[in-house]
Amino acid sequence: MSRATVRTAALDGWDGILAGRTTTALAIPERPAPCANPCEATIMAPASSMPLAEFVRFSEDVVRETRDVAIPWLAGVHYDLASLGPIGSAVNSAGKVGTALRRLVDYFALLQDCTDIRLEREDDMASVSYRILDPDIWPRHHDAMFSLGIIGQIIRRGTRGAWDKIEFAFEAESHEMRGDIGKVLRAPCTFGADSNQIRFPAQMLDLALPQVQGPDADIRGLSGEIVAQRRRTPLVERLAQVVFRDLNTHAIEQERIAREIGMSSRTMRRKLAEEGSSFQQVLDECRMRQAVFEFRTRPDLSIAQIALRLGYAEHSNFTRAFHRWSGISPHAWRARLNQTAH
């Protein structure tokens, strides 16, 4: 998987919030010059990007240095959506909360790749979940506060500031978040979840949003840009992101994934071969990298439980696969990881 990136516009507004909150030399990452790649779609002006891991590390450093867990949340809640260009215009021009959230989710891949973000509704509750799919980017606790802050901003616009019956869930454990998250969010929180999530009454989706002045939204252009981006992305990358998304939650079935990507399984196998790979190679690599992630983040789980989460019916099969990939057993890898941590 290639290096995940995020638009440097994600850094907008942090300097104002950080002002006066730290005496250390906490620096906001430098922004590269805008990309002048001629293959960029016309609707999205060339924009600079940075490694997603760098932005995540920055958000972690902010909380560690300031000892203020509220900062990423405040950066998201007060974020100027106009900084997102055409996507911000699409969100700001939405007439209802649900429409604004749907547009943010649908076009999020143009802002940050290698991320699973979803808007779902179940009975009388709705939710937006956010999760970075690259298992090598960890810890990734406080960037979630920032992203959920932007989502919370949209909901608050519709409720005119009311904040009732809102719930949060986070991938990280509570002690890893360096503060009283529930007090900051003024809402119940759970930890150790499979994804970062904000849940709210589904009726809020129908709340009207106040009008925000700005450029007209080009929904058709954004949709075309999403299609163009998918076409530019190598099939191995697209397949890996689907596998990382579905590990722990769905059976990894070649036919189903091929349909989702938009081709037959036969065509997918042929195109993967042209890229020098195969479905099984991608699946094995994703499983092994996810296994290391599970070792780091879920020390309470046994090797057998982790094998089951990765889709192995027998943990012995997982042990053999992991040994082929790493040269040592899962038990030895976990022991080495524990020694490093201490």
Rank of each mutant, 00 (worst) to 15 (best):
D206L: 13
T99E: 15
G76H: 07
A9Y: 04
L185M: 12
N37G: 05
A19I: 10
V69W: 03
T249V: 07
S89K: 11
H331P: 00
I257Y: 03
S59V: 01
E294K: 08
R103Q: 08
S223P: 00
R131M: 03
I181V: 15
N37F: 09
D206R: 09
G179H: 05
F293N: 13
V105G: 11
T159F: 08
N248Y: 09
W325C: 11
L74G: 01
P29L: 01
R238F: 01
I150P: 01
S264T: 15
R3Q: 15
E120P: 00
T319W: 07
L209Q: 08
S59P: 00
M145T: 01
V227P: 00
V97Q: 06
L222P: 07
V69S: 14
I28M: 05
T115N: 09
G179S: 08
E285R: 15
A36G: 15
G13M: 10
L337G: 10
I303D: 04
E237P: 05
D113E: 02
P51Y: 03
V243T: 02
E255F: 07
L310A: 04
F295A: 06
E225T: 09
N248Q: 14
T42S: 08
C39R: 15
L119C: 06
E65W: 00
V105M: 12
G214S: 13
F200L: 05
T42I: 03
I151N: 06
I117A: 12
C35H: 05
P234S: 08
V6R: 00
E60G: 01
L247H: 04
Q290S: 13
T99F: 06
C35A: 13
D113I: 00
E253F: 01
S89C: 09
